[in-house]
Design a protein around this nucleic acid. Structure first.
Length: 617
DNA sequence: GCGGATCAC
DNA sequence: TATGGTGATCCGC
């Protein structure tokens, strides 16, 4: 059943003209970057829906004029120049590739394609659901009079805007002052998360009926596997999704768009096709999938951003189908990782597994803040302190500590620098964050910064139980662990990477007990001996090197953060006493664990972070 | 392992 | 006058 023969009929002959790229006439140093710079300044949401009648050239000119001369503008200009240089380099490299090399590459690429093709799974029906202009639509429910007026949600930078505003060329991620130049009558509302969270929960409640294990990526986006549901109700998948969308609209007043396909990649891309308030289904059929992908502009592929698009275009790869046409050349230019990613896109392959977001293990937690550029130490200390306190809050809430601390600075010029340092022990307090962060900051002086951020990695999970229980648990035997906590995010990472069982991805219980004591106990000063002991006992970090094969490339799977659970998904099923969530006001099981979990989710920065999301729609 | 970059949202 | 915050991953050294 595995068709090894690529469907795409033609592949560009290796003996193709080396001088076939017409647009290289301009020597790109600085003169031609004006055009691409405008493109860059336009931002990431240009090709999104709702901008049909927009005069992009005029909008682009206004943005350019409004930005010109600012530090931000100059930084973008530098970056654009660098990129142009890099693209030129790549084109030069491409010209040097010999026909012999191309032929050899062709053989390898074909082998790769056969290998990937063999993984194709057309048995699942995956749906990607995407709310239309989510924040804006929620606001319209409370302010119906806004429906006919251009308005946006955000603060300084727009998170999203309604479709009226989009007609003017207003977009998400646009600076507010720029947006007002484009659309002087624009109304800007501030973010109101409790409202968005509540609506999001209501939507997820409905999604759960179609797939209790759906994956809520953000407040306004989710993946479902409706294979089982369709079988159960013996209904057509399009009918099912249509009904689901109708129900969402009837109960929340919000419209959503959906994509249906054999895997998440196809579903995700398809959900944008008939936005807003539409759906698009791609049959679980190899030809249908390949055809759908074939004419897709490369920028529409999730994972292809501004930079990769520029590089692909320079190699005359405009559409997804052209990836195959140029695959031998691409193989010589890009890394294996990128090549794997591109070929999987061309083939329309993707993940067919959907699982709840809380099954993913968080790898870092951080906090950063922008402000007017400063250079005095006293002021920087104050900002650092503030960031450290915010980070502590998140750590406490998530019950995490970190073995490494990272400092991020953005200079007044918008140039960013980051410094990272292993800690003598896992840390999770503001005072530690501040102290060690300050040490790193001092090494960068003198400096003028407009942003300071702190982030911890190499996380230690302190959750579930208090230190005592954890300590006791540490005394037990290895075997006890398995039947213990069925759901927690401990070993999921390993499972995710296909390691499943004996993977030493996390620390075992003994280590955790030890860690808790170290953190809570010797808060002061680095008992170096003890620490070295601890560190040397740390297990080998598997995981990283395993991605050699298979996808996992460019976010094949959603890599997400922490807790996400709707209401009363509570599996204990015990007494179902309900209380009101203090955050969203919804009814939640009064069960301690369930309630805590829900509140955690409600407060989650992951949810709040949505503030700045919706980089499109 | 670190720092810079890219990407998503 | 003026352009976000959180998290992940990849790549080159």
């Amino acid at each position: 059943m595995l068709v090894s023969e690529p469907a795409s009929p033609k592949r560009e002959n290796t003996i193709s003209s080396p001088e076939s790229s017409p647009k290289k006439s301009e020597s790109g140093t600085s003169a031609d970057s004006s055009g691409t710079l405008r493109h860059r300044l336009l931002g990431p949401s240009v090709q999104k829906s709702g901008q049909d009648g927009v005069n992009q050239a005029a909008v682009s000119e206004i943005i350019y004029q409004a930005s010109q001369g600012s530090k931000y503008f100059e930084h973008q200009k530098r970056k654009e120049k660098d990129l142009t240089k890099k693209v030129e380099y790549i084109v030069n490299q491409a010209a040097k590739v010999s026909n012999q090399e191309l032929e050899a590459a062709e053989v390898r690429v074909d082998a790769l394609i056969r290998q990937y093709e063999a993984t194709r799974d057309l048995t699942q029906t995956i749906v990607h659901v995407d709310c239309d202009a989510f924040y804006a639509s929620v606001e319209e429910l409370d302010h119906p009079e806004l429906k006919s007026k251009p308005f946006a949600v955000g603060n300084g930078v727009l998170c999203t805007c309604n479709y009226v505003a989009r007609k003017f060329g207003v977009r998400s991620a646009m600076a507010e002052f720029v947006a007002r130049k484009i659309c002087p009558e624009l109304i800007v509302l501030r973010l109101n998360f409790p409202k968005y969270i509540e609506k999001s929960n209501a939507i997820r409640m409905i999604l759960s009926e179609y797939d209790p294990r759906h994956c809520a990526m953000t407040l306004d986006e989710a993946y479902l596997n409706i294979t089982e549901y369709c079988a159960k109700v013996t209904k057509d998948r399009e009918e099912v999704v249509s009904e689901m969308r109708r129900r969402i609209f009837e109960t929340t007043g919000l419209t959503v768009s959906a994509g249906i396909g054999p895997n998440s990649r196809v579903a995700k891309i398809a959900s944008n096709v008939n936005k807003p308030n539409g759906q698009c289904a791609i049959a679980n059929d190899r030809e249908a999938v390949m055809e759908f992908m074939c004419n897709l502009p490369v920028r529409k592929i999730t994972g292809v951003g501004y930079v990769l698009e520029r590089q692909l275009l320079a190699l005359d790869v405009n559409s997804c189908g052209e990836i195959y046409r140029k695959s031998a050349l691409l193989y010589q230019i890009f890394t294996d990782t990128t090549m794997t990613f591109l070929l999987n896109c061309y083939l329309g392959l993707g993940s067919t597994e959907v699982k709840p977001i809380d099954q993913y293990e968080r790898k870092s937690v951080g906090c950063e803040r922008s402000f007017r550029a400063i250079s005095e130490m006293a002021q920087m200390k104050q900002k650092l302190q503030h960031v450290a306190e915010d980070l502590e809050k998140d750590c406490k809430r998530l019950n995490l500590a970190g073995r490494k601390l990272g400092l991020k600075l953005k200079k007044a010029t918008f140039e960013q620098i980051s410094r990272q340092r292993p800690m003598p022990r896992p840390i999770n307090t503001a005072s530690d964050f501040y102290r060690y962060g300050l040490q790193m900051l001092e090494k960068e002086l003198p400096i003028t910064v407009r942003l300071i951020g702190l982030r911890i990695t190499d996380l230690v999970n302190l959750s579930h139980e208090g230190p005592m229980k954890t300590f006791l648990k540490g005394q037990r035997r290895h075997n006890d662990r398995l039947e213990d906590e069925p759901s927690t995010s401990m070993n999921i990472h390993a499972e995710f990477k296909g390691l499943v069982d004996g993977s030493p991805d996390m620390h075992d219980d003994e280590e955790i007990g030890e860690l808790v004591m170290m953190i809570q106990g010797s808060q002061e000063e680095d008992a170096s001996g003890v620490i070295d002991d601890y560190r040397s006992s740390a297990k080998a970090i598997a995981a990283r090197d395993i991605k050699n094969e298979e996808e996992l490339v460019h976010n094949t799977e959603p890599a997400l953060e922490s807790e996400s659970l709707p209401l009363s998904t509570d599996s204990g099923g015990s007494s179902t006493a309900l209380v009101s969530c203090p955050i969203c006001g919804n009814q939640v099981s009064a069960d301690d664990q369930a309630l805590n979990h829900h509140v955690d989710w409600c407060l989650s920065r992951g949810a709040i972070r949505e503030a700045v999301k919706e980089t499109f729609n």
